[in-house]
Each structure stands twice: as structure tokens, then as C-alpha cells.
Design a protein around this nucleic acid. Structure first.
Lengths: 130, 130
DNA sequence: GTCGTAGTTTGACAATCTTCGTAGTACGAC
DNA sequence: GTCGTACTACGAAGATTGTCAAACTACGAC
């Protein structure tokens, strides 16, 4: 089919509605260190981030996969801005659907024994000068 | 080989210490409907339950598998009593390690099964906020 | 001792997941 | 138009997971 007949914004992305978010899907999506890291980074003040800004230790196609899992689980919302795909945590939707869950996970993540994946020598946390 | 050189109590079970419980393991363990059901049942007043008491829709060996996943993740504690293996939620350990996490999951589970959420929007049922 | 109960262990299978590389698309800049 | 950037889609390889049946072990009762 002619996919170019889409709206000018074109690349629309599917998101579950807040009320449709499934608990198993959320837990399953968060049960991966890379996705947990994405969620954690998103929660640290930066409202919207492009995929490239995360500097994940995986290939681009794997990144796409992880972002899609998070999006389809209802954890993040994504939209296009130029060639970039911006991501944002759906904190309010999650809080509404599963009160306290996201906060508990984020809090738990901070309290965890850090495996020093990024090397502890980055207190300022220079997350890419995108 | 001397397989019977085990301790007389024999069947000892490995459990992670409270401080060693991993967030990913917990989330991963809870991201399964059968295990979620086990945890839910354990949280409903019955402190200790034998595996057989759950009436899970799977075979015995699959049950064993799920209980082991929960135990190795640090979510339940198991001990033998006669021929039965009793299970108990490690609520205190989990609360200590990841405050609010288990409570949020259990609460989320109660608010969950609503495939008709579109129609009624469930006004007063699941209260939002803490 | 024998027998039944409760659960484990092993091995197998299919399904799913994570990862990658390659090829492709949409957009912005030139 | 061409080019580069940012990302996607499409397999495919490898690992993990959920499931089962069959054989086994530990315990209690008889």
C-alpha cells in the first residue's frame, strides 16, 4: 500500500491508552538492564530525549527494539521531531494506572548496588552534549 | 558416587540475602502471570502455603520451576515441612530493599483486570494517588 | 518393609527475547 | 537533485524461558 499517503507528520507511532497498560507488560519491559537504564535516564530531569542521546552499549537496531518495547508497554511516549525520535516518560499515565509503581522502581534502582557500568568517575554525568 | 552424603535435613534451599536481591530479578520474576498469581495468593492472608495449595494450571514440574524463580529472586522463602514445601512472601526483606515496590505491584494487580476500562472509565474504583 | 503423597531433576521442545548486520525510509541541509 | 543523519524493518543467530513427561527422592503412614 502507498504508505506515503500518510499525514504530513507521517510517522505516527502506536501507543496504548493509559487505561490499557498491562501490568505484566510493564514489569517485563522494566526487567531488562538496558531498558531500566533508559527509564532511569528519562526520569533524571530531561523530559524529552532522542534515542541517540542515550549512548546505549548496543547497536542501533537493538536500540530501536528496546524503545519499541517500552513504548508498546506504555512506559514511554515517542514522537518525531525532524529525523529524531523523541522519548518521554509517561509518568502521569503510569501513576494513574499503577500508583506508586514507577516511583518504587526508580527508587529501587537508585538504592541498588551499582555495577559501575559507566565507570563511577562521572559524577557530573555528562550525557552527551547532543 | 555418594549422593546420600548430604546433610540429614537434606533438602536445603538456597535463598539470596535481603541485601543481595536484584531489582531486575524481582521484576523479571513478577513479569509472569502465574508467578504474579502465586505472589498475590501469598499476600492474601495465608502466611505459608504448600505448593499444591495453589492449584496452578500447570504441571508439577512447571510449578517447581516457577517457585524456584520466585525463591531465587528473593521474593519468597521456602522450607520443608514433612513432604510439603511451604512458601512465604519475603515482604519485610523486599520492603527493606526496595521500599514500596511489592506493595505497588500487589495494588496494581488488584486494579488491573479491566478490559472494559474504555466504557466506564472506572470512576471511583481504583483511587489514584499514593 | 510397602505404599502413597509431594515435590525434584532431567531432558526435550517450542516460543520468545536479545542481539546483530544489512538494506531501506524520512527528514534537513546544501 | 545529492548527501548525511537518525532511525526502522527484515531476517538470522544465539540465548533464555515456559512447558511437559518420565524417572527419581524424601517423608509419613501402614
Amino acid at each position: 500500500m502507498p504508505r506515503s499517503t500518510r499525514a504530513v507528520q507521517g510517522r505516527q507511532l502506536e501507543h496504548p491508552e493509559a487505561g490499557q497498560i498491562q501490568l505484566e507488560a510493564v514489569l517485563s519491559a522494566l526487567a531488562d538492564p538496558i531498558r531500566l537504564r533508559i527509564v532511569h535516564d528519562l526520569s533524571q530531569g530531561h523530559e524529552d530525549m532522542a534515542c541517540i542521546a542515550f549512548e546505549l552499549p548496543v547497536s542501533k537496531s537493538t536500540s530501536t527494539h528496546h524503545f519499541r518495547v517500552l513504548r508498546e508497554a506504555g512506559i514511554i511516549r515517542q514522537y518525531y521531531e525532524g529525523t529524531s525520535r523523541m522519548s518521554r516518560l509517561r509518568e502521569q499515565d503510569l501513576q494513574e494506572r499503577f500508583p506508586g509503581l514507577l516511583a518504587a522502581v526508580l527508587n529501587a534502582q537508585d538504592a541498588r548496588p551499582s555495577p559501575d557500568r559507566d565507570t563511577a568517575a562521572t559524577p557530573g554525568r555528562d550525557r552527551v552534549g547532543s
